[in-house]
């Protein structure tokens, strides 16, 4: 599963909306175009909101996989 090499990782398990998105956005702002960010998100509201907001900012969601323990691993490609 974890064959994508991420340039950076954010563990946002337990972080509520919208702070999880805010942290994702700040991290993406600091990254270069084309770099890969991996975020861990809780299921439910975070998974419903964060990937959508990230896409609205123009970034690409490469994939989202459900991991053991019920959280999601989301791979984002920074695009400006």
């Amino acid at each position: 599963m974890s064959n994508t090499i991420a340039d950076d990782t954010l563990d946002l398990r337990g972080v509520l909306c919208p702070i999880n998105f805010v942290k994702t956005k700040l991290k993406l702002e600091a990254m270069a175009d084309g770099e890969i960010l991996e975020v861990y998100l809780d299921s439910g509201e975070p998974m419903a909101n964060v990937p959508r907001s990230v896409k609205n900012e123009g970034h690409q969601i490469i994939k989202a996989t459900k991991e053991e323990g019920g959280y999601f691993r989301v791979i984002i490609k920074k695009s400006s």
Binding site: I19, F21, V22, K25, L26, A30, E57
Partner: peptide
């Protein structure tokens, strides 16, 4: 730049705006 938790939370509604962001 490393942002403090307090800064992120205080200004979160600004940062969310595409026209504002962290920068």
């Amino acid at each position: 730049m490393a942002y403090s938790e307090e800064w992120i939370e205080r200004y979160s509604r600004h940062i969310i705006l595409p026209e504002v962001g962290g920068k």
